[in-house]
Amino acid sequence: MTPHAEGISDLIARTALGDRVAFRQLYERTSAKLFGVCLRILKERQDAEEALQDVYIKIWQRSGHYLEGQASPISWLVAIARNHSLDRLRARRPAALDIESALDLAATDPDPEQSAENGEQRQKIDECLDRLAPDRADAVRSAYLDGWSYAELAERHGVPLNTMRTWLRRSLIRLRDCLSP
């Protein structure tokens, strides 16, 4: 379940004014969601607990940067938790292999939209994922939700690292073509 977005923007705005009551209410309404994010990506509870503290300290410090209407307030908060968890994950991983590699990639004209998400577009990504092979759609989802690296995805799917890269990159191009016809 996702916390009700209504009122969350106001709590972020009041937090930006240094209102500790609003900050506590924001925590009460969103911490289970954000702890879920930290725990899913970091796996270890102790690590996730420390990450959650860091995340709310960042929210306190950055609340003035949130622009109403730019993104849903929940997405904004989840992005802070997710990015921070991924940073911690990257820091504890051994140096990864160089990702630059010349791969044959099907190419089409890019047409990225700058617009903020709306409900229809958000539903559309599921439709577009459904057009990919199930294991490839699963790889995209679990990269986002579990923070898995190429190496971890390759191991999980039992394919060589380069194959996983090619898979995923091609999947991302198809996804974009589907999302931006």
Partner: peptide, 27 residues
């Protein structure tokens, strides 16, 4: 920004987990 916006549709996949009660005091 485009990809952040699109992938945020996955956010619903994060289940809620109650943090330990002492967490907010530490924050």
């Amino acid at each position: 920004a485009y990809w952040r916006s699109r992938f945020s549709a996955f956010d619903e996949g994060f289940a809620e987990v109650a943090p330990p009660p002492a967490a907010f005091r530490q924050i």
